[in-house]
């Protein structure tokens, strides 16, 4: 990458201070994270390579990360099997997904 500040991995931080280090390319599947990390936006996140998501707790964020990798893995494949989601997590995850735009 041209910009030497851009690392391969970025850190997502949940409301209860769990940190998830995931591939930048996967993280940017989520529209909100992509915007936050966009070098043109000038947000602080771009220099720190760290996004604090204060509305999402660790359990949900873990699932979100799982989804981001799942999405990346299946980006070009056909007839993708649905990802398993625990029913009790669904509502929180849905709100998080809406917020993150995935």
């Amino acid at each position: 990458m041209a910009d030497n500040k851009e690392t391969e991995y970025v850190t997502l931080v949940s409301s209860d201070d769990f940190e998830f280090k995931i591939l930048r390319s996967a993280a940017c599947i989520a529209g909100t994270i992509k915007k936050a990390l966009d070098p043109q936006s000038g947000f602080r996140e771009t220099t720190q390579n760290r996004v604090v998501l204060s509305t999402i707790n660790g359990v949900v964020l873990e699932k979100v990360c799982e989804y981001l990798y799942y999405n990346q893995k299946h980006a070009e494949s056909k007839d993708v099997p649905d990802m398993e989601i625990e029913p009790q997590l669904c509502l929180e995850l849905l709100i998080a997904a809406d917020y993150l735009d995935v």
Partner: peptide
């Protein structure tokens, strides 16, 4: 058929399946 469903879509479908438990 290409790629996966959005996370929102997955959640919504799951919720519909468990509609009685919400």
């Amino acid at each position: 058929f290409r790629g996966s469903k959005t996370l929102q879509q997955l959640c919504i479908e799951k919720l519909a399946k468990h509609s009685d438990d919400i």
